[in-house]
């Protein structure tokens, strides 16, 4: 099995530690991972802003970089969802169809392709899961609170196996954090208010570390947490699943990026 690793643009530049954790984690699981050097962005920023046509080059570049892999894995539910859902704007060649079918968000890949849950991680903290919307309602990485279905969550299934972790229950299990791409800027007031409320939910419920499948949500929340000097940390789920922290310290490893 040959896996192509897609690292979203903002992770590459701003949160490289998430890319490293993802790669290390996959390698730990004995997956042959290649990081194609010509990759850029999935095209979502333009498309969500109403300029899908300007994203065509990015889509084509994505497909060219990943067409030869059995699976494409990315530490972003949002990017995986974008490729799956919105790559209908380019010609549906066999390569495009294959890439759209085989792109996976990291947890989805581990649970449903590798079919493992016990990853040998330890992370002795109280963790609140932020269920990023595109992963939740787009990729269906878990049951959303609106639907009447049997409850499940791939993310929580993995986290439950992490040694020392305590998963905290939130008042609103899957409300959006307010990032929303350009929404964070065009609707900055509501965006910030949503983030603020989300953070309060985590604080109220004793969370020490917020985790998510998407760094974009975490970047937004972290921006607010840092600005308001709140006692919370954010960690991408790959960082937790790749963590080997045995005993709790005041500041979990990696705080200083």
């Amino acid at each position: 099995m040959k896996v192509g690793l897609f690292i979203p643009c903002y992770i590459n530049q701003l949160y490289p530690q998430v890319g490293k954790a993802t790669l290390e984690l996959l390698e730990k699981l004995k997956v042959e991972v290649v990081y194609p050097s010509g990759q850029t962005c999935c095209g979502q920023p333009m498309a969500n802003s109403g300029f899908e046509n300007e994203s065509e080059g990015a889509c084509i570049n994505f497909v060219n970089n990943f067409k030869d892999f059995d699976y494409i894995v990315t530490p972003s539910g949002s990017c995986a969802y974008h490729v799956k859902k919105h790559y209908n704007i380019i010609q549906q060649t066999d390569e495009v169809v294959k890439v759209r079918k085989n792109v996976y968000e990291l947890c989805d890949f581990i649970v449903n392709v590798l079919k493992v849950k016990q990853l040998g991680a330890s992370f002795p903290y109280k963790v609140g899961v932020h269920k990023s919307c595109h992963g939740l309602r787009g990729l269906r990485l878990g049951s959303s609170s609106e639907l009447v279905t049997a409850p499940y969550s791939y993310i929580e299934a993995l986290l439950k196996e992490v040694k020392g972790i305590e998963l905290m229950t939130l008042d609103r299990s899957d409300e959006c954090c307010g990032f929303g791409g350009t929404f964070a800027v065009t609707e900055d007031v509501v965006s910030a208010k949503m983030g603020k409320d989300k953070i309060q939910d985590h604080l109220r419920n004793g969370v020490e570390v917020i985790t998510a499948t998407d760094v974009s949500c975490l970047m937004h929340l972290e921006g607010l947490i840092t600005r308001n000097k709140q006692p919370l940390q954010v960690r991408h789920i790959a960082e937790i699943l790749n963590s080997t922290i045995e005993s709790k310290v005041a500041h979990p490893k990696g705080q200083k990026h």
Binding site: C9, S37, G38, Q39, T40, C41, G43, P45, M46, A47, N48, S49, G50, F51, E52, N53, E54, S55, E56, G57, A58, I60, N61
Partner: peptide, 28 residues
């Protein structure tokens, strides 16, 4: 959003930056 991007007057800056982003992301 896609229809609005095409058919309504968009701020110059937004249009240009979207086009620029598109170009950057299509060329590694």
């Amino acid at each position: 959003r896609q229809i609005i991007g095409k058919e309504t007057p968009q701020p110059f800056i937004k249009k240009k930056s979207m086009a620029a982003m598109g170009k950057i992301f299509s060329k590694p």
